[in-house]
Amino acid sequence: MKKLEKKHPLAIRWFHWINFPLLALMIWSGTLIYWAYPRYANLPQTWWRAMKINNRLAEGMALHFFFMWLFMINGVLYVAYTIFSGEWRDLVPNRNSFREAWHVLLHDLHLRKEAPPPRKFNGAQQISYTGVILMGLGSLVSGLAIYKPVQFGWLTKLFFGYQGARFVHFALTVGYVMFFVIHVAQVIRAGWNNFRAMVIGYELVMVPDLPVPAPEPAPASAPGVGAKERSETSSPTPGAEAGTGSGDEVNDEQ
């Protein structure tokens, strides 16, 4: 039998999808800045020109120092939300996560049969999704160390100086690109149902059929996407129009 199950809260979906273009803009404007002194990896000028990244340092800095605020605010609100809503419990790794992440990796490389546990986030995801937030914090801090290396000189010192902070800031950017590639590959692998849940909040799940249609207890009201729908299942079920009405008599699924 199929069932809709709430997966991602509305707030987290907004934070996620707002972060995506903001981070993209930060990386792109950062590249406009990086062009002026491509210290860690240089590319032929023809490539820079083809990508229209050349001679745009001032523009890159202006954009970077504009969107940094939006990027930071969105990130801070996300972290605050996960703390106050309790969502952090699903996201933050625990002492089993690292072993589990290893098993997930082996499974994904087809070296291990057992699938990862069907929890919302497995160990590998917990480590990735918490790690990328820490990377974000690292970008803010190393960015500030580059932006104001005298007024925040103690920060710059933490990075072994100005060029150290620049290196960390750059390495983290490479990290985001790697995160993005793996993340998108995994989302494609996981399929449409999983991706759709990040847009609509709900995932379609199969639950085992009950052998005997048991009469339902009195409908319990539960929060859903709409304001005032009632639902019969213990997990909140969305979509008032479809949910109510047909609920009292039970189980005629094919």
Binding site: K2, L4, Y202, E232, P238, G239, E241, A242, S246, E253
Partner: peptide, 11 residues
């Protein structure tokens, strides 16, 4: 419990 059609419609 909702039936399968309801779930599909809702989805």
């Amino acid at each position: 419990m909702m039936n399968s059609d309801d779930v599909d419609r809702q989805l």
